[in-house]
Each structure stands twice: as structure tokens, then as C-alpha cells.
């Protein structure tokens, strides 16, 4: 663990913002203030914080439909991210994308994606760009346990490996794809699958920010040194359903209560840093409350942010008929 106090504070801030963001989206979606479908990442904040902390502005990321926390971790503007989810023109994609398609190319964020498995090949392409640029940038592909079964992902493994590209595959395994558990849907193991393509792979505890960060740092170092792709299998869990509104009857009795009580990555982070004397509980509490307020303000502003008009419909198309 070589993180400075400031870096630790920043990691915690990312997790706190992401948590409040999802709790806010949950509440406001439930109250009918947010249109469409939203997939929440509450519970999975250590992935966002740990992975993105090891990246810098040279790097590219292609990620999934469950990406609010990751957008925050990547430093997308909080207000623009919130506005996008509400469908305001001030959103990062002008309100045309929504929760499933938040992207910010200026920040290396190739976007959340509505097509499971699409991220693998996109990251391979970004890996080609990174190599061509010669700045030792890396490309990261996220997909879930469910996404790991999509053929596109295996094609991406193969491409990245034969070309020894600076690509990092992140299987963010929250135990379920919609209502289907990974124990049913995944044959073999993620690590063995990667090894089968000749790529190093590790499984990490996704509730532990430090475990995620360490594994990611190692993978990034390997990729920046030209040693090729690798895979990290992050074992985590979601606190909410597949989407807001999912009754989740497929989950076990008390499963979520137990997760919240025993496997909350923010609490686990706190225990570690307070126990070792790196940070104090008061410092963390302060951050937690600051972020709560910042997110609440962003949500209020998003509700009154400007909405699209007819003039916006046919912008960014090259022809109309």
C-alpha cells in the first residue's frame, strides 16, 4: 500500500460520491423524476475507485450499463453526469444518451454501453490507438459476470493477446446477470479462461479497495511496459436489483441486508485506514457528508436543468429525408 493520505482521502471521496449518487438516483427514479431504466452500482464502489485510481489521462475505458460510479471515478463532471441521467441538454451527452450511454471522450471514457460484450473489442481498438500514440497509455474493458459469457469477449481476449496490446480486462462479477447467478451461467473460471488465452489473471475481493487497486496497478504497469494484456476478476455484489424496480425474488433471504451489514466497501475501507492510523473517522465522516450535499445539490439542479426542444432532434446526423 503506497498511497499517500491525499490519495486515500480521494479514493474514499470517490466511493462516497458514487454511493450517494446511486442512493439519490434510486430515490428520484422511484419518485418518477428520472425517465427510462437505471442500473445502480451501489455496493461496487471499490471497483470504480480502485481501478480508476491506477489510471491516468492517457488511458481509455469502455464500460457497461452499470457505470454511474465509474463515471464519477473517472472525473466526469458530477453535474453533467447527473443531468444526462435526467435527460437535460446540459448532460454530458446533451441528454441524447441517458444512463446507459454516458460517455466523455475528452476524458478517455468511451462510454457506458447498452450491448453486453461490446466493450471487449472497443477496448482492443483503443489499445491499438494507445500503442500507436506511443505514450504508454492503456485501454480497459469492463464487463460483468454475465458479459463474460458473450463471444465478443473471447474474441477480444484473443486479439489483445496475439497483438500483445496494452489492454486490461475487468470482469466485474457481482454474482448475477439480471436474475441469473454466475454460479449457473459461467463454465470454468474467469482466471482459467484468461490463462487459456495465454494472459495472466487474478481474482480479487471487490469489497476491498486495496486489493482492487493493487491488482490494477500491477496490470497497468505490465501493460505500460509493453508486456501485454491481463485480466482482473473482481468479486463483488450489488445492493440493488438489476434495474430499479427489479423485485429480486431470485435472491436469498436476507442476502442484501447481510451484504450491507458485512460487505460494505466504504466501511471496510474505513476500518482499515482508521485502524492503521492513516486517517481518522472524523475526516471520513466529513467527506461523506460533503459528498451527500454535493450529490443532493446536483440532483436538485438536474431536475430544473434545461430540456431539449425540437431543434435538438436532428443535430449530429449527416442527412435527413
Amino acid at each position: 500500500m503506497q498511497l499517500s493520505r491525499d490519495e486515500l482521502l480521494s479514493a474514499y471521496r470517490t466511493m462516497a460520491t458514487a454511493r450517494h449518487f446511486e442512493e439519490s438516483v434510486f430515490q428520484n427514479f422511484s419518485d418518477g423524476k428520472i425517465p427510462g431504466f437505471v442500473h445502480l452500482s451501489a455496493g461496487q464502489e471499490a471497483t470504480a475507485a480502485g481501478v480508476y485510481m491506477a489510471l491516468d489521462e492517457r488511458d481509455w475505458i469502455a464500460t457497461t450499463h452499470r457505470a454511474h460510479g465509474q463515471c464519477i471515478a473517472r472525473g466526469l463532471d458530477l453535474q453533467e453526469t447527473m443531468d444526462e441521467i435526467y435527460g437535460a441538454t446540459t448532460g454530458v451527452c446533451g441528454g441524447k444518451g441517458g444512463s446507459m450511454h454516458i460517455a466523455d471522450l475528452d476524458k478517455g471514457m468511451l462510454g457506458a454501453n447498452g450491448i453486453i460484450g461490446a466493450t471487449g473489442p472497443l477496448a482492443v481498438g483503443a489499445g491499438l490507438s494507445a500503442r500507436a500514440k506511443g505514450e504508454n497509455g492503456v485501454a480497459v474493458a469492463f464487463y460483468g459476470d454475465g458479459g463474460s459469457n458473450q463471444g465478443l469477449i473471447f474474441e477480444a481476449y484473443n486479439l489483445a493477446n496475439i497483438w500483445k496490446l496494452p489492454v486490461i480486462f475487468i470482469c466485474e462479477d457481482n454474482g448475477y446477470a439480471e436474475a441469473t447467478p454466475s454460479s449457473y451461467s459461467v463454465a470454468g473460471s474467469q482466471v482459467a479462461r484468461a490463462n487459456g488465452f495465454g494472459m495472466p489473471a487474478v481474482e480479487v475481493d471487490g469489497f476491498d479497495f486495496f486489493a482492487v487497486y493493487d491488482a490494477m496497478r500491477e496490470a497497468v504497469e505490465r501493460a505500460r511496459n509493453g508486456e501485454g494484456p491481463s485480466l482482473i476478476h473482481i468479486k463483488t455484489a450489488r445492493f440493488y436489483g438489476h434495474f430499479v424496480g427489479d423485485a429480486q425474488t431470485y435472491r436469498g433471504d436476507g442476502e442484501i441486508d447481510k451484504l450491507r451489514a458485512e460487505k460494505d466497501c466504504l466501511n471496510m475501507f474505513r476500518e482499515k485506514v482508521v485502524e492503521t492510523g492513516l486517517l481518522t473517522g472524523e475526516q471520513l465522516d466529513e467527506i461523506f457528508e460533503e459528498e451527500r450535499a454535493r450529490v443532493a445539490d446536483a440532483a436538485s439542479a438536474a431536475q430544473v436543468a434545461p430540456r431539449a426542444t425540437e431543434a435538438d432532434l436532428m443535430t449530429d446526423v449527416y442527412a435527413s429525408y
Binding site: 439480471e178 441469473t180 425474488t249 435472491r251
Partner: peptide, 20 residues
């Protein structure tokens, strides 16, 4: 199909979704 039953092998109910 994906989740045409929903919950196969999960700790809770089978036929939890019965399709998306």
C-alpha cells in the same frame, strides 16, 4: 433465452422473472 425463467441456480425463487 436470458431469464425466460430467471433465477435458475439462484438462492431465491425459480421463474423469478419469467422473461424480462
Amino acid at each position: 433465452g436470458e431469464d425466460v425463467s430467471g433465477g435458475t441456480g439462484a438462492p431465491g425463487e425459480d421463474d423469478a422473472w419469467g422473461g424480462p
